[in-house]
Amino acid sequence: MSMSESPKRQRLLGLFALGWLLLNGPLLTLWDRPILLWGMPLMPLALFVGWAGLIALAAWVAEAPGDS
């Protein structure tokens, strides 16, 4: 990465990498257990919570004041 890239762009690229890892097939098998939380299987619950977390973080980074 070049030094001229804005911090916001670097954070969004890092968030993309985090999302890539979070939604990666081999890592998703960690959540594939026969466990129910609030009546929902663990894997779909982990997927939706992780996805919502990524969206919230992306919105927070995109709307943060500072470099654009």
Rank of each mutant, 00 (worst) to 15 (best):
A64E: 15
T29K: 13
A59G: 14
I55E: 02
L42V: 04
A62D: 07
R9L: 14
P7R: 09
L12I: 03
G66E: 06
T29P: 03
G19F: 01
W38S: 14
A58D: 00
G25R: 11
L18K: 01
A59Y: 08
E63T: 15
D67L: 13
W38P: 02
P7Q: 08
G66V: 09
W31Q: 01
D67V: 12
G53W: 02
L15V: 03
A59I: 13
E5I: 07
S2N: 13
V61F: 12
F48E: 09
G53D: 08
L21W: 05
L37C: 05
G39Y: 01
L27A: 12
L42M: 12
P34D: 14
P26H: 04
L21A: 15
L13N: 04
G53E: 04
M43T: 11
I55Q: 01
V49R: 00
P41Y: 04
A56V: 12
L47Q: 09
N24S: 15
L15Q: 08
L36F: 10
L37N: 05
P41W: 00
I55N: 03
L57R: 06
W20E: 06
T29A: 14
L54V: 06
F16C: 11
V61W: 01
E5F: 13
S4N: 13
W60R: 12
F48R: 05
L37K: 02
M40R: 12
G53H: 02
G50A: 08
S2G: 14
S2D: 14
A59D: 06
S2M: 10
W38G: 15
W20A: 15
L45C: 05
R33E: 14
I35G: 07
P7G: 09
S2W: 13
L23A: 14
E5G: 06
F48T: 14
N24A: 14
W38D: 08
I55V: 15
S68F: 01
P34M: 07
V61N: 00
W51E: 09
Q10F: 03
A46T: 08
L21R: 05
E5L: 14
M43N: 04
W60V: 00
L21P: 00
